[in-house]
Each structure stands twice: as structure tokens, then as C-alpha cells.
Amino acid sequence: MFSMLVEALSGCQDVVQTAAEGDTVVARLRCSGTHLGVWRGHAPPGRRFECVG
């Protein structure tokens, strides 16, 4: 599913923050770009987006 997301939404990803405890690592990412490809059946509107999560 991640590869489908990358194909549909051009742009970049940045690691904002990481945390580790024992053998577990989590990362907070920022992703921004332009919706240029079909995503889950939705036609590409060509709009810019940004999300952090």
C-alpha cells in the first residue's frame, strides 16, 4: 500500500522525530507534495498537500 501512495503522490518525506526503546523504534514523518496519480480510485486533482504523522 505504501508503494501505491508514493506513486500517486509526488513529493518528499522528512523524518521529523524518532524515539527508541529496546528493540522498538518509532518515527514521526512529514510528507508533502502534489496529488498527481490515482489513489484508491480517486482521480488526481493536482493539488498540493502536507501531512505530519
Rank of each mutant, 00 (worst) to 15 (best):
V6P: 03
V38F: 13
G53R: 15
C12Y: 06
M1C: 13
A20T: 11
D14I: 09
P45G: 08
Q17E: 09
D14R: 13
Q13C: 13
R28G: 02
V15H: 09
E50R: 11
G11R: 02
R40D: 08
L36S: 12
C51Q: 11
V6Q: 09
R30C: 14
G41N: 06
E7H: 13
C12G: 10
E50T: 10
G53Q: 15
V26M: 01
G41E: 02
R30N: 12
G22D: 08
V25I: 15
V26T: 03
D23F: 08
F2I: 13
G11A: 02
T24I: 06
R48V: 01
G46F: 04
G53S: 15
R30G: 11
A8G: 01
R48Q: 08
G53D: 15
V26Q: 00
L36M: 12
V15D: 02
R47L: 09
D23Y: 08
A43G: 10
L9T: 02
A8Q: 01
A20Y: 04
M1N: 14
V16K: 05
H42S: 11
V38L: 11
V15A: 11
E21N: 13
C31W: 08
F49S: 03
C12F: 03
R40N: 13
A8D: 02
T24S: 04
R40P: 02
V6F: 08
A43Q: 12
V25L: 15
T34K: 14
S3L: 09
C51H: 10
G46Y: 03
R30D: 05
T18W: 02
L9N: 07
V25R: 15
T34H: 12
S32T: 00
L5K: 04
A43C: 07
C12N: 10
E50V: 09
R28D: 00
R40V: 03
P45Y: 01
R40Q: 14
A19Q: 12
Q17G: 03
E21V: 09
V6G: 02
E7Q: 14
V16R: 02
C51W: 09
F2M: 15
G22P: 09
M4A: 15
M4G: 14
R28M: 06
H42G: 04
R28L: 09
M4K: 15
M1D: 12
S3K: 08
G41Q: 07
A19T: 10
L36T: 13
G11F: 08
M4Y: 12
F2G: 15
G53I: 06
V38H: 15
P44A: 15
A19Y: 06
R48D: 01
F2C: 14
L5I: 07
T34E: 03
T34G: 04
G37S: 03
S10G: 14
P44C: 04
E50Q: 10
A27G: 05
D23E: 05
V38I: 09
T24H: 00
R30A: 14
H35L: 04
T34S: 09
S10C: 13
T18K: 02
P44E: 01
T24A: 07
E7P: 15
C51F: 11
R28I: 03
V16S: 04
A43K: 13
S32L: 00
S3V: 07
V15E: 07
S3P: 01
H35F: 14
M1Y: 14
G41Y: 06
R28S: 01
M1T: 12
A27W: 03
E21I: 06
R48S: 11
G41A: 06
F49N: 03
V15F: 07
L9E: 01
D23W: 06
V6T: 05
C12W: 06
G53F: 15
D23L: 07
P44T: 02
